[in-house]
Design a protein around this nucleic acid. Structure first.
Lengths: 351, 351
DNA sequence: CAACTGATTTAGATCGATCTAAATCGTCGC
DNA sequence: GCGACGATTTAGATCGATCTAAATCAGTTG
């Protein structure tokens, strides 16, 4: 039996201590780099560790010391590049702190999220970074506070009584709409998709406000499917019929990429006949042609920010709840062009 | 102090046992769903757990039972969609088995990989799924075998003495090249990038063999940069000069997307003037227009396969090393077209 | 030389579960 | 009524580290 042998000849701290003729306690101090031990004994113990091939057993340490150097990350989706960039940012910071990430995928389902969170708790993670699934109740976060489990909300939030790292979606929408209006567009649609959550709501509200602030009616908010191929097929919702517009602001770059493909299929040239503005500016957007104008939200930086918030909270549990809301930045490229009047678009229905 | 209080009022198995007036051992049996306990006591204990709000402490259990319900996943890159689809597959299977994934990113650096692997070992993972960083030595895997730490190699392999889940890249290359040859192309280039590892070598060798098997000289193998934007800028390497060709097989879809963008910038119409075949068929490729012909390698399925191999090995450590090599599938779309003779391409330099 | 430092080292309890080996219980056959 | 037997239950040791509080040691000092 493999596990038998692994267990049998495992060298423990006691073995190391004996081999170095010191006590278990001293050996423990050496491992933890305590300044209490003398240089000589430290050397002796380290040599012994080397010779015996000692492997630190975090499990034992965690039991006694009640910390695991482990943090849980709950994400609703692993294929959307936005979330993986976020994850990369989190992983970088956590790793640099000498901790590891336990990753789970909630699939944006509250019930799964519930079981996953208890599982993390059982595993004894030191803290959790959560992008709450749609329909997550505030009570969940309150319950977790009772668990004394440090929590950071990321990208979406269900309560203000808890750290949060995210994006100022409202500002981003103002940038997107403002840009299109400056180019002369007035029939601007908004293409949304995905589950409804705080980030969704903020984007929609942001769009509405941005339009109204410019005296335009935000009445063309159209829902598209979630799968890339299906999004492409729904492009004609924007090029003809009641939703006909001269420009579309997209909920995110996935929608932008999909619509771009769909408009191409319809023979419409983006950046000439039609304008498109994406949201998030994920890496894949760089491959689109014409180049996608997009509102950059820096998911990797957000991930790093969230991880830092959590690390801070681990050392200072009594900090008041903090918010890290990053301002997005409009990246103007080729997919948005001056309104030609000859392309699509219809008579403006507002003053 | 938060951690104080968390520690203080933690309810342990002993508390539960007392509350249910049974022994600690019996309570433990109930948790582990042992058939030894009577239905009544089981109910009693479960009620007690409920009332006291008991939380299972995996850390303690793992220490005694020497298993952690945790597996380590080491991936060289978190932003390439290919790896995240792989990761999604792994996570699905591991999660279904009631275990969790500890995720780390080696950045394709052997030195980092080394420290990460020992870190996983210290954390007591039950097994590891590793996509070996470029330049990983066979000795690493041998050393891990000595650790008695179950290991599955994924996508790349450095030894045959260890489970492996991957793709038959050779077959994929034959499909890609064969398709282009059938369309009349003879000047077929291969665009590679990234670090050199087994999967890299297999793709290159596969391309060479596929070309030679058809009487063509595989002498146009060109290295492009790693970043999307830079790949696009290198597209002219294939449209003019000594590398001039009528079709390109791409190392992966990232290269294909990049070249597609670059060729667009040069005013070359893919699927008419020039043919492009991608490799991997990741989800993002669906958004490309014209639609990308690509060799599908099913990363998610590979991830699932790797996870299953590992789960099997956990229960049967003495199984001989197994290989799960999936055959890819050519997806013909619009980016590859019959050689027109009027587009790019040059006089064939072989018989 | 005893008392008192400050710097190191240590014995022994402890974290919260699981495992082993033995105890207890109710029932049954004789 | 007694020993046996299967079904349950349990006491106590154990996993491998950390923590606490106390011991030890080498110098100083009065």
């Amino acid at each position: 039996m493999v596990s038998e042998s692994r267990k049998k000849n495992r060298v423990t701290l006691l073995d190391v201590a004996r081999h170095a003729s010191v006590s278990r306690a001293t050996a423990s101090l050496v491992i933890r780099k305590s300044p209490l031990v003398s240089t000589e004994t430290r050397a002796k113990v380290e040599a012994a560790m080397q010779e015996l091939g000692y492997v630190y057993n975090m499990g034992a340490a965690r039991l006694r010391a009640d910390k695991s150097l482990t943090i849980g990350v709950v994400i609703p989706n692993l294929v959307n590049p936005f979330f993986t960039e976020l994850l990369a940012g989190i992983e970088t910071v956590i790793d640099a702190a000498g901790m590891v990430v336990i990753l789970v995928n909630s699939g944006d389902l509250v019930t799964r999220q519930e079981t996953l969170l208890t599982r993390m708790r059982e595993h004894g993670v030191d803290g959790i970074i959560l992008c709450p699934a749609a329909d997550t109740k505030m009570s969940l976060v309150e319950r977790m506070a009772e668990w004394d489990l440090p929590l950071v909300q990321v990208l979406r939030h269900v309560t203000d009584d808890c750290d949060y790292a995210g994006v100022d979606y409202g500002v981003g929408m103002h940038q997107a709409v403002g840009h299109l209006v400056e180019l002369g567009h007035r029939d601007i649609a908004f293409a949304v998709h995905g589950p409804v959550h705080s980030a969704y709501q903020e984007r929609v509200d942001g769009f509405r406000e941005a339009m109204e602030a410019r005296g335009l009616y935000p009445n063309t908010i159209i829902r598209v499917p979630n799968q890339m191929a299906a999004i492409a097929d729904s492009a004609e919702l924007f090029s003809s019929g009641p939703g006909r517009s001269s420009a579309v602001v997209c909920f995110n770059d996935v929608v932008a990429l999909g619509l771009s493909a769909g408009l191409y299929d319809l023979g419409i040239t983006i950046g000439r006949d039609f304008s498109l503005v994406g949201f998030d500016d994920v890496a894949d957007a760089e491959a689109m042609r014409p180049r996608l104008t997009s509102v950059a939200t820096f998911p990797e930086a957000i991930g790093e920010g969230a991880a830092k918030l959590l690390l801070d909270r681990l050392t200072q549990p009594d900090l008041p709840p903090r918010k890290l809301v990053k301002a997005p930045q409009l990246r103007i490229r080729q997919s948005s062009a001056r309104w030609s009047g000859t392309g699509l678009g219809r008579v403006q229905n507002s003053g």
